[in-house]
Design a protein around this nucleic acid. Structure first.
Length: 476
RNA sequence: GGCGAGUUGGCGGAGUGGUUACGCAGCGGAUUGCAAAUCCGUGUAUGGGGGUUCGAUUCCCCCACUCGCCUCCA
């Protein structure tokens, strides 16, 4: 078994991963707040931790890993969206959650074992808050319940800051009911227009951080192996989760390893609505960028480095992936052949691929290895590539072996015969050594974005990335 | 101001205390009627300054610059 090493934010070092219980490896990842379509930044942790999930399943067995990714469906941004649109909160959260699942699946992500919704765990949150009050780590004031940062001396350890540092920053909200400016809200009162639940402190709703502590505790236990999320959540969200959970369960350490992915940039700048470089996963999919290509681009950058989404990378990823799939196709890869390889025990992972993945998820290193593996000359020699592409979620169906949203399957019926006819005419011109005519016809195909491959007398074609059906109309 | 991450060839992007991966682009060649596609080959890099060392891109210190977080944004 390959040793998995991961960079633990808590210790800022790469550590050998040793599960608490190898029979049940447990990972919690902070999922979306469901008020709008997932943007490209949301996709990064989903993909990064999906890859880790796949590696853990590979290492410990598919039935020995539990992956929880929550859906936060109670939040003031949702309330605001409901107020703007006049729609009900439930309608918005149901619709957005369904979008999220759909978009993440389109990116090749497996479905987590549990996708708990915060509103289904209000009771557990209330219980946890009551416990924190009883232990002196929280206090009720003015209808609010606040966590007392002073009661937890370790506060700030994850993000490497002290309470004094943060107060010096002086960007904290100083509410009159807070004992300490850094104290954060566990529970807050709701008015008639806001979602609310009965509690010992009146009708109210949870603060931002408590839901993750409650859901992780309920589904994974008081201690589990891995907690992941974007690095913007490190402070305050994860810091607060740790404080809550550590004080609620002093005898248990919440997560052994904390992992954080870096942020996404677009063309070198932070994605933001004001810069006009903000887009959702769905926007890209609708523009015809295959989900596998988006996934490939994410995997080409290490998860702990900022990733720049650029048109160049998209193009390069598409070309590489298309090339690999075509190599596999040419060597006869099909569902039947893969089934046969699996049955015969020849379907095995390349050691270097697993080694790279196990080394703090070095997916760019994996890509480099795959370039090498893709040069194999036999079907058997390509098993390492095929196995890796399936394992990484870059090939979903051995039947198709084409990018999922390539436009080939949507072509009108007349296109095939027209292109074939042009190719035949061009062939005739070549046989007659009428080079001018042959070149003219080739230009027509180039202008149409039809990619022609002449290999040893056999001519094949596919609609290329710049395929333009209008150029072919006149040849009907 | 505090905390953190980072700086590698034209571009993207890894590993490594001692010959610096890999991809794209470029260049040369094979192939081709000429091309495309494919195949083969090939040049170019470790921000600056100190230190440790026989030897530093890698370890330590300082500086510069970039990015992120500290504003319920993954």
């Amino acid at each position: 078994m390959t040793e998995i090493r991961l960079h633990n934010t808590k210790t800022r070092t790469r550590e050998v991963f040793t599960p608490l219980d190898p029979e049940n490896v447990r990972m919690y990842v902070c999922g979306p707040t469901v008020y709008d379509r997932a943007h490209m930044g949301n996709a990064r942790p989903a993909i990064v931790f999906d890859v880790l999930y796949r590696l853990l399943r590979h290492t410990y067995g598919a039935d020995h890993v539990t992956y929880v990714r929550n859906i936060t469906d109670v939040d003031d941004k949702i309330n605001a969206r409901a107020a703007e649109t006049g729609r009900s909160i439930r309608e918005i959260t149901d619709e957005t959650a369904a979008w999220y699942i759909e978009d993440m699946a389109a990116l090749g992500n497996l479905t987590p074992d549990h996708s708990p919704r915060a509103t289904e765990y209000i009771a557990q949150m209330v219980t946890m808050i009551e416990g924190l009050i009883a232990s002196g780590n929280a206090y009720a004031a003015d209808g609010h319940v606040l966590f007392s940062v002073a009661s937890y001396p370790e506060y700030g350890a994850l993000s490497g800051r002290t309470v004094d540092d943060m107060i010096a920053g002086a960007r904290v909200e100083v509410a009159p009911y807070k004992r300490d400016p850094m104290d954060f809200v566990l529970w807050k009162p709701s008015d008639d227009g806001q979602p609310g639940w009965d509690s010992p402190w009146g009708t109210g709703r949870p603060g931002w951080h408590i839901e993750c502590s409650a859901m992780a505790g309920a589904l994974l236990g008081e201690s589990f192996d891995i907690h992941g999320g974007g690095n913007d959540l490190m402070f305050p969200h994860h810091e607060n989760e740790i404080a809550q959970s550590a004080c609620a369960h002093p005898e248990h350490e919440m997560a052994q390893i904390w992992l954080h992915n870096e942020m996404l940039l677009v063309e070198g700048r932070k994605m933001s609505k004001s810069l006009g470089n903000f887009f959702t996963v769905r926007d890209l999919l609708d523009q015809g960028v295959p989900g596998e290509v988006i996934r490939f681009v994410f995997l080409s950058t290490h998860y702990r480095k900022p990733m720049d989404w650029t048109e160049d990378k998209r193009r390069e990823a598409e070309a590489t992936l298309t090339g690999w799939l075509s190599v596999l196709r040419k060597h006869g890869y099909s569902p039947g052949m893969v089934a046969k390889l699996k049955a015969s025990g020849d379907w095995t992972a390349d050691h270097e691929v697993i080694g790279n993945l196990s080394s703090d998820m070095n997916t760019p290193g994996v890509m480099a290895r795959l370039h090498l593996l893709s040069k194999a000359k036999t079907a058997y020699g390509l098993v390492g590539l095929a196995y890796a592409l399936e394992m990484l979620g870059l090939v979903r169906d051995w039947d198709v072996l084409e990018l999922s949203t390539s436009q080939g399957d949507a072509l009108p019926d007349w296109v095939g015969p027209v292109v074939d006819d042009i190719l035949v005419q061009r062939q005739k011109a070549r046989e007659a050594k009428d080079w001018a005519e042959a070149d003219r016809l080739r230009e027509v195909l180039n202008a149409s974005g039809v990619q022609v491959a002449d290999v040893k007398g056999a001519v094949t074609w596919v609609p290329g990335p710049n395929f333009d059906i209008a150029q072919l109309e006149s040849f009907k």
